[in-house]
Amino acid sequence: MAFKTILTITGPEMGDDDLKLGADVCEEIGAHLSVLVVAIAAPPPVGEYAAVVSEAWLEERQADEHVLKKRAAAVSAFLAGRVLSADVSSEYPEAGWADDTIGRRARYADITVTGPELLANEMLKSKAIEGALFSSGKPLLLIPEGSRPTLKPKRVLIAWDARLESSRAVRESLDMLPGADEVHLVMVDPVEDENRHGAEPGADAAAYLARHGVKVTVDRLPSSNHSVADVLRRHAVDIAADLMVMGAYGHSRLRERIFGGVTKSMLDELSLPILVAR
Score class of each variant (00 low, 15 high):
Gln62Cys: 05
Gln62Arg: 13
Ala63Thr: 08
Ala63Phe: 09
Asp64Ile: 03
Asp64His: 05
Glu65His: 06
Glu65Cys: 00
Glu65Asp: 14
Glu65Ser: 07
Glu65Ile: 00
Glu65Gly: 00
His66Ile: 10
His66Asn: 08
His66Phe: 05
His66Leu: 08
His66Thr: 12
Val67Ser: 10
Val67Glu: 09
Val67Trp: 12
Val67Gly: 08
Val67Pro: 01
Leu68Tyr: 13
Leu68Asn: 04
Leu68Thr: 03
Lys69Trp: 08
Lys69Gly: 12
Lys69Pro: 04
Lys69Cys: 03
Lys69Ala: 09
Lys70Leu: 13
Lys70Thr: 14
Ala73Asp: 15
Ala73Arg: 10
Ala73Gly: 11
Ala73Tyr: 05
Ala73Lys: 07
Val75Phe: 02
Val75Leu: 10
Val75Cys: 06
Ser76Gly: 07
Ser76Asn: 14
Ser76Val: 12
Ala77Leu: 06
Ala77Cys: 11
Ala77Trp: 07
Ala77Lys: 12
Ala77Val: 06
Phe78Cys: 14
Phe78Ser: 07
Phe78Thr: 15
Phe78Ala: 02
Phe78Glu: 02
Phe78Gly: 00
Leu79Ser: 15
Leu79Phe: 11
Ala80Ser: 15
Ala80Leu: 09
Ala80His: 13
Gly81Arg: 11
Gly81Gln: 09
Arg82Glu: 12
Arg82Val: 07
Arg82Leu: 11
Arg82Lys: 14
Val83Phe: 10
Val83Lys: 12
Leu84Tyr: 10
Leu84Arg: 14
Leu84Met: 12
Ser85Glu: 15
Ser85His: 13
Ala86Met: 07
Ala86Arg: 05
Asp87His: 10
Asp87Ala: 05
Val88Cys: 04
Val88Arg: 05
Ser89Trp: 01
Ser89Ala: 10
Glu91Trp: 01
Glu91Arg: 02
Glu91Thr: 09
Glu91Tyr: 02
Glu91Asn: 03
Glu91Ala: 12
Tyr92Val: 01
Tyr92Lys: 00
Pro93Asn: 12
Glu94Leu: 07
Glu94Ser: 07
Glu94Met: 14
Glu94Gln: 09
Ala95Glu: 08
Gly96Phe: 11
Gly96Asn: 00
Gly96Thr: 09
Trp97Arg: 14
Trp97Met: 13
Ala98Asp: 06
Ala98Trp: 05
Ala98Tyr: 06
Ala98Glu: 04
Asp99Tyr: 09
Asp99Asn: 07
Asp99Leu: 08
Asp99Thr: 14
Asp100Asn: 12
Asp100Cys: 12
Asp100Thr: 11
Asp100Pro: 02
Asp100Phe: 13
Asp100His: 13
Thr101Trp: 01
Thr101Leu: 08
Thr101Asp: 06
Thr101Lys: 10
Ile102Gln: 07
Ile102Pro: 00
Gly103Tyr: 06
Gly103Asn: 02
Gly103Glu: 07
Arg104Ser: 06
Arg104Asp: 09
Arg104Met: 06
Arg104Thr: 08
Arg105Leu: 00
Arg105Glu: 01
Arg105His: 11
Arg105Asp: 03
Arg105Ala: 09
Arg105Met: 02
Ala106Gly: 02
Ala106Lys: 05
Arg107His: 10
Arg107Tyr: 01
Arg107Trp: 05
Tyr108Gly: 01
Tyr108Lys: 11
Tyr108Leu: 12
Ala109Cys: 15
Ala109Asp: 03
Ala109Gln: 10
Ala109Ser: 15
Ala109Glu: 03
Asp110Met: 07
Asp110Glu: 04
Asp110Thr: 08
Ile111Pro: 06
Ile111Ser: 06
Ile111Met: 04
Ile111Trp: 05
